Amino acid sequence: MPHALFIADIHLCEDEPAITAGFLAFLRRDALQAEALYILGDLFEAWIGDDDPNPLHAEIAAALRQLQQQGIPCYFIHGNRDFLLGKRFAAASGMTLLPEEQVPELYGKRILIMHGDTLCTDDRGYQRFRHKVHQPWLQKLFLALPLFLRQRIALRMRAGSKHANSSKDVAIMDVNAQAVTAAMTRHQVQYLIHGHTHRPAIHQLEVNGLPGERLVLGAWHHEGSMIRVSDSETSLIYFPF
């Protein structure tokens, strides 16, 4: 049955070879059966620039390029970990970069897709930080720094983020219901797919006066997670690495 696949929060890094192996197996197995693959952010644990010579990046780019050569288009929305991923890596991998909110029409369904962090409006500290680091001038300045300095800054920021999150109420790190409804109403959709929260589920809701669904992808910690959309279903699927 023709279908599209959605994934997010894979968090690829050299320290987690099992996740890398699972992702590569997913590309060779599940993705090849789809008509399109959508990656909704945080493909990588961290991204400090397309000029980073990390061998893992080249390996993933080659695998994604092979998928495209097999006729499967891959689309990418930036996450909060890899928001600096740029045109150079996209060209090497064959991915199409999308804006932070996109509404593809698939199998008769208009679906709003995003990473999901912008929906967590109760976490005001994070939203202030996000606004700051998405300033184009600051990103340009950061990317102009030597690679070793960017690595140090990224490590320090990650440690600070972990410390801040450890003291937050878990509820404020989830999506805000009003923000969800506002986004779906703004785009006039009944379906929303996102990641970021690491709380995989399918939520039923009412929006625009009609039944709707919010589908949340899981993080790839110990198993894979994907959402499959076809003309007859929207399903959340788990699978072992």
Rank of each mutant, 00 (worst) to 15 (best):
1 M>Q: 13
2 P>K: 10
3 H>L: 06
5 L>Y: 06
5 L>P: 05
6 F>M: 03
7 I>S: 07
10 I>N: 10
10 I>E: 06
10 I>Q: 09
13 C>W: 07
15 D>M: 14
15 D>A: 15
16 E>M: 03
20 T>M: 00
20 T>L: 12
21 A>K: 13
22 G>E: 10
24 L>P: 04
25 A>Y: 12
28 R>P: 00
30 D>A: 15
32 L>Y: 00
32 L>M: 09
34 A>I: 01
35 E>P: 04
37 L>H: 05
37 L>I: 07
38 Y>G: 02
38 Y>R: 03
39 I>A: 01
41 G>K: 04
43 L>S: 09
46 A>I: 13
51 D>F: 03
53 P>T: 01
55 P>F: 00
56 L>G: 12
57 H>C: 06
63 A>Y: 08
63 A>L: 06
64 L>T: 01
65 R>V: 03
69 Q>L: 13
70 Q>C: 13
75 Y>W: 11
76 F>L: 06
78 H>Y: 08
82 D>K: 12
86 G>F: 08
89 F>T: 07
89 F>D: 02
92 A>V: 02
95 M>P: 00
96 T>P: 05
98 L>W: 05
98 L>C: 09
98 L>I: 06
99 P>R: 03
102 Q>H: 15
103 V>N: 05
106 L>E: 14
106 L>C: 10
106 L>I: 13
110 R>E: 11
110 R>F: 05
113 I>R: 04
114 M>V: 00
114 M>P: 00
118 T>H: 14
120 C>H: 08
126 Y>I: 01
129 F>Q: 03
129 F>R: 02
129 F>W: 12
129 F>S: 03
135 Q>V: 14
141 L>A: 15
144 A>N: 15
149 L>Q: 15
152 R>Y: 11
152 R>I: 08
154 A>Y: 08
155 L>H: 15
161 S>C: 07
171 A>M: 11
172 I>E: 06
173 M>F: 04
176 N>E: 11
178 Q>A: 14
185 T>D: 09
186 R>I: 06
187 H>E: 10
188 Q>I: 09
188 Q>G: 12
193 I>E: 06
202 I>D: 09
202 I>H: 08
205 L>W: 09
209 G>V: 07
212 G>I: 10
213 E>D: 12
213 E>F: 12
215 L>R: 11
215 L>E: 02
215 L>Y: 06
217 L>A: 10
223 E>D: 14
224 G>F: 03
226 M>G: 08
227 I>Q: 02
228 R>E: 13
228 R>T: 02
230 S>W: 04
234 T>K: 15
234 T>Y: 13
237 I>A: 12
237 I>W: 12
238 Y>L: 13
